Simulated scan of single mutants.
Amino acid sequence: MTSISSDVVRLFWAVLVGMALFAASVCAAEPRIVDGVEVREAIIKRLAAAGEAAAPSLLPQKQFYLCDAPLIVEPTFGGWRSVNVICPSPAKWQIAVRSQVKGAQIFNPVPNVAADLRAVFLTRPLRRGDRIQPGDVEMRPIETLSTGSIYASIDQVMGRLMDQSLTPQIALMPRHLAREWSVEEDDILALRIVRGGIEILSTGVALETGQFGDRIRVENARSGKVLLGKVTGEKKVEIIAKGRE
């Protein structure tokens, strides 16, 4: 009986020691000096998740501070043009880095639909000059921290020519496609005006040429007033504000 009890005690302590060693190995991450390569990769990965292509300029051999946790990348000044790269442990520190993203800004979707915000992404890499065919694109969720010029429908890009090579990790945007006018000067347009939560549909005349996402001046056919609108589709414009008559 005494021998069995001793064996049980030894087994109990062995289990405890093993559990303690395992916990210590899990909790203790290997500390390292963060360098330019790691910072650059963290920025590119974070912005890709937000639908942006980043090209931060950092010297690979540049060394920063000690860190034993994954780096955190956050936008600054309301957009992705520059970011804060943060290490939370062992002593919290952060650095500001220009992410080299043109026109980055926070996209504010319609309230209560943020969870349903989706954009057009490629399903495979395409090269400049390739024409988008069925199966080349798909709809995917996108973070609210992204540019406002994203495509919300596959119909908006089908058959368009690529103006630059692109991977499936980046949301498709007007700058990626060859210029194709959605509105020509003097076109008869379908106007959408939203005021105080009320939607008004009207007709107008284009005073300028524009493609998807462009802001152009239009003339309201009913009132004759000159308005500023955003091109939202083929001969479709959503009014933003009154322009100069």
Rank of each mutant, 00 (worst) to 15 (best):
V73W: 02
R160Q: 03
K62H: 06
A190Q: 09
G210P: 03
G224C: 07
L47A: 04
R10L: 12
L189C: 11
A20Q: 00
V97D: 04
I72E: 08
A104V: 00
R10I: 13
T147Q: 11
A29F: 04
L71C: 05
R217C: 02
K242P: 13
A190C: 10
S153I: 12
E180P: 11
Q164L: 12
P31K: 07
M158T: 15
I44P: 03
I200P: 04
V157P: 03
S182E: 14
P70H: 08
L172R: 10
Y151L: 12
L177N: 05
A119V: 12
V97L: 06
A206K: 01
E52Y: 07
A14K: 05
I239Y: 04
L47K: 02
A119P: 10
R179P: 09
R98L: 05
L227A: 05
K45G: 10
L172D: 15
E38P: 14
I4C: 05
E238I: 11
V110R: 08
R160T: 09
F64K: 02
L11W: 01
V15C: 04
E219T: 02
I95E: 11
E219D: 00
Y65S: 13
P75F: 14
N84W: 08
A53V: 07
R244M: 11
S6Q: 14
D130K: 06
A20V: 15
N84M: 08
I142C: 01
R192F: 03
F64G: 05
R127A: 15
F212R: 14
V205H: 09
V85R: 07
I150L: 11
S223A: 11
P134T: 14
P134L: 05
I142E: 01
Q105Y: 05
I216T: 05
R46F: 02
T203Q: 15
P31D: 03
L227E: 04
F77I: 09
G210F: 05
L71G: 00
A91H: 03
K92W: 10
V137N: 06
E138K: 14
L207Q: 03
Q94D: 07
I188Y: 11
V113Q: 09
C27V: 02
S82V: 02
L58F: 00
S223R: 03
I188D: 12
A42Y: 02
I188E: 15
G197A: 09
M162Y: 02
D136G: 09
I106A: 06
S146I: 01
E219W: 01
F64Q: 08
E234M: 07
L21Y: 02
G135A: 11
S202T: 14
S202A: 14
P168G: 12
V83F: 01
I43W: 06
L228V: 08
N108D: 07
E74I: 11
I95N: 05
A28Y: 06
W80H: 03
S25P: 12
A42H: 01
P174V: 12
V137S: 13
C27G: 10
T2M: 10
K62V: 06
P70M: 13
L189Y: 04
V183P: 01
I44R: 15
A53K: 15
A221F: 12
L117A: 07
Q63T: 12
A28P: 04
G197F: 13
E41R: 10
D35F: 12
L126W: 00
R124Y: 14
Q169W: 12
M158V: 13
V15N: 10
